[in-house]
């Protein structure tokens, strides 16, 4: 697959309209890499002028900041901002709502001002503009709101509109939108075990997902996908229920 890298474009005297911020998961996690590829395939299909930073991209620092390691967060943030400003990046699209949030809400404090768009909003625009073709399906699906897209940034409708452009069978979980239950990964929990308790958070959320009866559960965040997948596995339902990303769902329904 052809993935344009910003430094290479610039060396050729070219530029890109929008930067795709891939994020650590999208780059390194095998499951999230599939999402990255799916989204790039859509970008290529729609002939979007985009680029990624490639090896110049560093973690946004979200997990460090929420773990309390402000020093480490600022080291990463200031270096990223230096890179982004050097390329005069104006518009960024993210597949990870944590990267999205940090770039959008936290980088301005340090001199990084960009227009941020989460890929669920971006996909929604592409579908509405007719640039991205999808086919109708009658599949029953459910959708998990990630905290950092939903509650934190109040994006509830764009991902639902994407789903509804494909299927009318969207079954909401009992806790959804502003009342959605966390997958258990935020606040750097992704990188540690749960504290002692009755149950893991991702298992609790997987139960919500399973009780919808949908065989496909859609998510918009690489951490949520991992957590839900593990939760479904803990309930031994991995052969019946699939956790899919929005971009993957679109590619399956074209």
């Amino acid at each position: 697959m052809q993935i344009p890298i910003l430094s290479e474009l610039v060396a050729q005297g070219k530029t890109a309209d929008i930067l795709f911020w891939v994020g650590c998961s999208g780059n390194f996690d095998a499951r999230a890499q599939k999402v990255t590829r799916a989204f790039c395939e859509i970008l290529n299909q729609c002939k979007i002028s985009y680029a990624i930073l490639g090896n110049e991209e560093k973690c946004t620092g979200d997990p460090a900041r929420r773990a309390g390691n402000e020093f480490l967060f600022q080291m990463l943030a200031l270096q990223n901002i230096e890179t982004l400003n050097q390329y005069q990046v104006k518009k960024i699209v993210c597949t990870c709502p944590h990267c999205f949030n940090t770039l959008k809400n936290e980088y301005p404090d340090f001199g990084g001002h960009y227009e941020l768009i989460h890929y669920s909003e971006f996909l929604n625009h592409l579908i509405k503009e007719g640039k991205l073709k999808v086919s109708k399906s009658s599949e029953k699906v459910s959708y998990h709101d990630s905290c950092y897209l939903g509650r934190v940034n109040q994006v509830y409708e764009a991902p639902r509109e994407v789903i509804q452009s494909i299927t009318n069978e969207l079954v909401e979980m009992k806790r959804s939108k502003s009342n959605g239950l966390c997958c258990g990964a935020g606040g750097a929990q992704m990188f540690k075990e749960d504290e002692p308790g009755d149950k893991r958070i991702n298992v609790e959320r997987a139960e919500d997902a399973l009780s919808t009866g949908a065989r496909t559960v859609l998510a918009n965040c690489p951490f949520c996908i991992t957590m839900l997948q593990d939760g479904i596995k803990a309930k031994d339902k991995q052969d019946e229920v699939m956790i899919l990303d929005l971009a993957e769902f679109i590619l399956q329904n074209q």
Binding site: C24, G54, K58, A64, A67, N69, L76, Q79, A188, F191
Partner: peptide
């Protein structure tokens, strides 16, 4: 390990591969 990896590799996981 996450902190160390962020410090040394600027990624949350310590993976020897390049980002791309």
């Amino acid at each position: 390990p996450m902190f160390n990896s962020l410090e040394n590799n600027q990624a949350v996981w310590s993976i020897s591969e390049e980002r791309t």
